[in-house]
Nucleic acid binder design. Structure first.
Length: 614
RNA sequence: GGCUUCGUAGCUUAACUGGAUAGAGCACCUGACUACGGAUCAGGAGGUUGCAGGUUCGAAUCCUGCCGAAGUCACCA
């Protein structure tokens, strides 16, 4: 990285003096030199030659000559078409290697970018976490680390959807059918127990609905809608929600419960608190297994009433308007969207009202200038509207809002649907990947001699490394096909592959620890694989930064794979401990140690820990 | 239907944000342990980047139009 800025400033000074040309860092496009050409890295001259109005070929030579004279790091150059290929000096390789004695040195230019509130996970309390949540959580966690590294003060937060119809369904079903069942008595994790009763409710409702379809009432509804007899099945398939609201006795009971809850009826509140506490215990366990946490958790039951004041203010300032029935709306047609309801006619909140209030509260709590929501792309439109309304309200952080919109996770069997049982449960998945890793370890001898505890910890790291890497290596925006078989894969482009490079290095360093500080100045024959590693590592901080700016950890994940791959090749091509000279050995030990440090640091930014053995 | 996002080897994907001959992994073939860990390495085969135009020194990337997929268009969250 510093080399790029070093070269950029040399050249921009030259162009300024010689051509009175103003150039931006953007005009300097560097890339590693392709293998078929001579050189280590390449400057693309077209943008510059266009500005200077010179022929790319000639201009490349001119810049090459200048660098040759003025930079200690440039040994030779050649120009092919508009590409200036530069061969770097011994001095450069040594300085670069030494700079990785302290990785943080590469991030020092990062200035303070202020406070960022980052929201992720944000589950409902009526069912356990599933694969979709895992993608969300891993993205959020990794992003929090990456952003922090790049100069943000990050506040991790979630909002728990702990109220409403859904949780009342679980509560009602528990009350009716559970006979006092608890997580202890059933030996079920709390969130799974609640999920179980959510499913039981849905089943009971389906039965009730099926029976109702045979009644006079149902016939009448069907006839009133003027449907033909052969459409009967399709009609009732779509009518379920309306049935729930208008005819269902279970539906009536749920609504009664919701009203009781809103009134603060003690028995209902007590049940609600009890069941939610079970769920939270379950969530905490899963979060712990995933190795994530939050600085502050918001609960919808505390925040759902918020936002009304903000809407009132907006109304007073003429930003919003009121319809005859008393409902409040905002007109977003000027920015290409629709009109959006902000308050119901009876004065109660809707979803967006709550989000407005929550945003304001968070600003009061933390005074952030930026806020990022990790939420699935099904809510794209909601967030577009939310951000626009916050802008209209003139909130100070409104320009710093971002929706990290990630793609849904599909299974080979199709879309995940909780009600149809077509979901990959988070806890099950974690258990499965740990079981697979355990089996792999039994087939090898890498962990022989370790205690059971040490083994278990290493296995856990390998398993979670496989799962996390599998989910993080793809671009978050993209819809993702999740094949459970593939997520258990530990060879090839996987987390364990990257971990394996690290473990190999540690294995060597355990044997020769005391020689790490030896001199490298007399090593003159730096080979191609060593150079490739150093060039790659030089990109590290840039890649982290790109991941931060793009909100995309996959850049980093792919970089780490590339680095591990290059190291594996280097390892096969050259002896380290038994190198051809003491100088070579010292250089390679130091290089290996630097690679290990970058791999470990980078994986940590993805939320993945390294095993010591595997 | 309107809007948004996405189409890259059989499958999963990358491409430094417009740069050189589109790069990997899986699966499939062939090789490498009397060398620091074979969860590894080397090699082979596999591509009209959905299609058709356009923009320019140069396009998977930007623009236009088709084709296909997903999401969304609630006084649900």
């Amino acid at each position: 990285m510093q080399f790029y800025s070093h070269t950029t400033s040399l050249l921009s000074a030259y162009l300024e003096d010689e051509y009175s040309l103003e150039t931006q860092p953007k005009d300097y496009s560097f890339q590693p030199t392709r293998k078929e050409f001579e050189g280590n890295f390449t400057l693309v001259v077209f943008p510059l030659s266009a500005k200077a109005k010179k022929k790319p070929e000639d201009f490349g030579k001119e810049l090459g000559d200048y660098l040759l004279l003025n930079s200690d790091y440039v040994d030779a150059y050649n120009v092919v078409k508009g590409f200036l290929n530069i061969t770097l000096s011994l001095q450069f390789w040594r300085d670069t290697l030494l700079s990785f004695g302290d990785i943080y040195q590469h991030f020092q230019h990062q200035d303070n970018k202020g406070k960022l509130v980052l929201e992720y996970s944000s589950p409902n309390t009526n069912k356990p976490l599933h694969l979709g949540h895992i993608r969300n959580i891993l993205l959020g966690w990794s992003l929090s680390k990456i952003k922090a590294r790049c100069g943000h003060e990050v506040i991790k937060t979630q909002i728990v959807n702990d109220r409403g119809v859904a949780i009342c369904k679980s509560m009602l079903a528990w009350k009716k059918f559970a006979k006092g069942e608890t997580p202890e008595s059933s030996d079920l994790k709390g969130d799974h127990l609640i999920g179980k009763y959510y499913v039981i409710f849905d089943r009971a409702l389906s039965e009730e609905y099926a029976a109702w379809q045979e009644t006079e009432d149902a016939d009448q509804v069907f006839r009133e809608k003027g449907k033909k007899e052969d459409e009967r099945e399709a009609f009732f398939k779509n009518y379920k929600n309306q049935y729930f609201n208008e005819f269902s006795s279970l539906g009536a009971e749920v609504r009664k419960m919701l009203i009781d809850w809103e009134k603060g009826e003690p028995e209902t509140i007590a049940l609600w608190k009890k069941m939610n506490s079970w769920v939270y215990a379950g969530f905490d366990e899963t979060y712990k297994k995933l190795g994530v946490d939050f600085d502050k958790t918001y609960y919808e039951s505390d925040t759902y009433q918020l936002g009304k004041n903000l809407v009132e203010q907006g109304l007073n300032h003429g930003l919003f308007y009121k319809k005859e029935d008393g409902s409040v709306w905002v007109d977003l047609t000027d920015v290409g969207m629709d009109e959006k309801l902000l308050l119901r006619g009876d004065g109660t909140s809707v979803y967006i009202t709550q989000d407005l209030g929550t945003a304001r509260i968070r600003h009061e709590d933390f005074g952030m200038n930026q806020m990022t929501y990790v939420v699935g792309n099904e809510q794209d439109y909601h967030f577009k509207m939310l951000f626009e309304v916050l802008k209209k309200l003139g909130e100070s952080y409104a320009e710093g809002l971002f929706h990290l919109s990630y793609g849904m996770v599909d299974l080979p069997s199709g879309k995940m649907k909780s009600r149809e049982g077509n979901v990959v449960d988070a806890d099950d998945l974690i258990a499965e990947v740990i079981a697979t890793a355990t089996k792999s370890v039994e087939e090898r001898e890498g962990m022989d001699g370790l205690s059971e505890e040490e083994k278990a910890e290493n296995i856990r790291r390998i398993a979670m490394g496989a799962l996390k890497y599998h989910l993080l290596r793809v671009n978050p925006r993209k819809r993702m096909l999740f094949d459970p078989e593939e997520s258990l894969e530990m060879q090839g482009h996987t987390g364990p592959y990257v971990q394996n490079a690290f473990v190999r290095i540690r294995s060597i360093l355990r044997k020769v620890d005391e020689e790490l500080n030896a001199d490298i100045a007399d090593y003159l024959e730096i080979n191609a694989e060593e150079k490739e590693l150093l060039i790659l590592m030089l990109d590290y901080s840039k890649v982290v930064e790109t991941s931060a700016v793009d909100h995309d950890p996959s850049h980093l994940a792919n970089f780490l794979y590339q680095l591990a791959k290059t190291y594996h090749r280097f390892y096969h091509e050259h002896h380290i401990v038994r190198a051809e000279s003491a100088y070579a050995k010292n250089f390679r030990l130091k290089l290996s140690s630097a690679v290990a440090a970058v791999l470990e640091d980078g994986m940590d930014l993805l939320g993945i820990s390294m095993p010591e053995r595997m």
